[in-house]
Simulated scan of single mutants.
Amino acid sequence: MPFLAADVGGTYARVALVRTSQDEGHEIEVLAYRKFACADFRGLAELLQTFVDVDARTPVRHCVIACAGQVIGNEVLHDNSAWPIHLSQLRQALALDDIGVLNDFEALGYALDYHADSSARLLCGPDTRVDGPALVIGPGTGLGAAVRLPCTAGDHVLTTEAGQMDFAPNSIREREVLAHLAPNGGYVAYEHIVSGPGLLTLYSALCTLRGETPKLSTPEAVTDAAVTCSDAQAVEAVEIFCASLGNFAGSLAMTFMTLGGVYLAGGFLYSLFALLERSAFKERFLHGRSARAFLSRVPVWVTEHGRKGVLGAAKWYLRRGLSGDAKSSHFSAAGLTR
């Protein structure tokens, strides 16, 4: 039975109608797929109903949603959500029998394929793919991260809120930026620096520190100006962004000993690949002293987001037996606990 798989971020939602293929491998077959801008809809129910009416064009009774944030009771809570997500209202509006919910980077973790990701580009480290814990990181509207652990019974993915860790400045300039963002001290999360909005925050802070008025108003404009070297503050903002991403990724790689590699996911980073290569990312990723010996063995790949989120969500959903003949009328317990 076909079911909906949705990957809902703060800016975009990717939705697919999927089912298990009939071949021996039981791969996931995508029957329809579409990417939506969240700002074009009043809520998730309207967005999903549009997909069902226009693209799926068939009744759907089961759905799995990969989204940023945490499920508390009946609600998905996240600072970067485009709108509130209330699961009981969503199920009622779409006449669904069942909704499964998981973290968006948990879904990306289940979609990782070490040997078949043709979009992956090696950023640093050895050009090898080995079994072992693997890390997926993605700066977008926020900063997500998850860890995939290989298991004999099937890979398991650990979700994290690593993007909420305290930003750790590594240079005098970064300390100046941090002091500007928190002049009275206090907590500044990594995602306030290493994300699309974080890049714009960096740019604005650097302009203020130089006594200049910011000329650019979007992360894309900052990126474009850095590529063309047409704005000195944009160039420096991207340099700090890339270096801080390296520090963040290296710290998590040490925490989870991710010999299986680090995957930087998302179209945002994919478009920055050339700038990442020239940046201090590698040096900051490698850290220093004894950690360097381990981290130099960890490959770092940059991969496109694409359909990975919906495919990973569908894989997670099918593994838990929640689609097909499932008759449950309540939310998946696994989904509620992430």
Rank of each mutant, 00 (worst) to 15 (best):
257 M>P: 03
231 D>K: 00
315 K>W: 04
319 R>G: 11
121 R>L: 11
20 T>R: 15
283 E>K: 12
68 A>W: 11
63 C>L: 14
24 E>T: 10
86 H>N: 14
326 A>P: 01
109 G>P: 06
95 A>E: 15
321 G>N: 13
5 A>W: 11
182 A>Y: 04
12 Y>N: 15
13 A>R: 06
110 Y>W: 12
91 R>E: 06
268 F>E: 01
86 H>W: 11
282 K>R: 10
192 H>L: 11
148 R>N: 01
66 A>W: 13
261 G>E: 05
55 D>S: 10
230 S>W: 10
133 P>K: 08
203 Y>M: 05
135 L>I: 04
219 P>F: 00
216 L>G: 01
232 A>E: 10
3 F>I: 11
48 L>S: 09
32 A>R: 06
261 G>F: 10
155 D>L: 00
73 G>N: 14
185 G>P: 11
134 A>P: 00
68 A>H: 12
94 L>E: 08
245 L>A: 05
75 E>M: 09
110 Y>I: 01
65 I>E: 09
28 I>D: 08
318 L>G: 05
233 Q>G: 02
120 A>M: 06
79 D>M: 07
148 R>C: 00
111 A>D: 13
235 V>C: 15
232 A>L: 05
186 G>W: 03
69 G>F: 11
235 V>F: 01
256 F>M: 01
292 R>F: 00
200 L>P: 08
40 D>M: 06
19 R>Q: 15
34 R>N: 13
128 T>I: 14
218 T>K: 03
317 Y>E: 05
110 Y>H: 15
311 L>Q: 03
47 L>D: 10
221 A>W: 02
267 G>Y: 07
150 P>H: 02
308 K>I: 02
106 E>T: 11
25 G>P: 00
262 V>F: 11
16 A>Q: 05
68 A>R: 13
298 V>R: 09
320 R>G: 05
141 T>R: 02
146 A>H: 00
327 K>I: 08
327 K>C: 09
159 T>D: 08
292 R>D: 02
252 L>T: 00
279 S>H: 01
302 V>A: 03
157 V>C: 03
30 V>Q: 10
258 T>V: 12
130 V>G: 03
14 R>T: 13
96 L>A: 07
306 G>N: 12
104 D>Q: 11
177 V>Q: 10
46 E>W: 10
296 S>D: 14
126 P>W: 01
307 R>I: 10
244 S>Y: 04
39 A>Q: 15
204 S>R: 14
249 A>T: 00
45 A>Y: 06
94 L>S: 08
30 V>W: 07
98 D>A: 10
116 A>C: 12
7 D>H: 04
100 G>P: 09
274 A>T: 14
263 Y>S: 05
278 R>L: 12
189 A>D: 05
6 A>H: 10
295 L>C: 05
221 A>M: 06
128 T>W: 12
226 A>G: 09
330 H>R: 13
173 R>L: 15
159 T>V: 09
191 E>P: 06
223 T>G: 09
314 A>H: 05
230 S>T: 13
318 L>F: 01
199 L>Y: 10
289 R>P: 02
255 T>S: 07
217 S>K: 13
283 E>G: 08
294 F>Y: 14
272 L>R: 07
32 A>W: 07
227 V>E: 08
164 Q>L: 09
135 L>V: 03
337 T>H: 08
311 L>N: 01
37 A>C: 12
207 C>Q: 05
259 L>I: 13
280 A>E: 15
244 S>I: 00
121 R>C: 07
100 G>Q: 06
199 L>E: 08
144 G>W: 01
94 L>Q: 07
152 T>Q: 13
201 T>H: 05
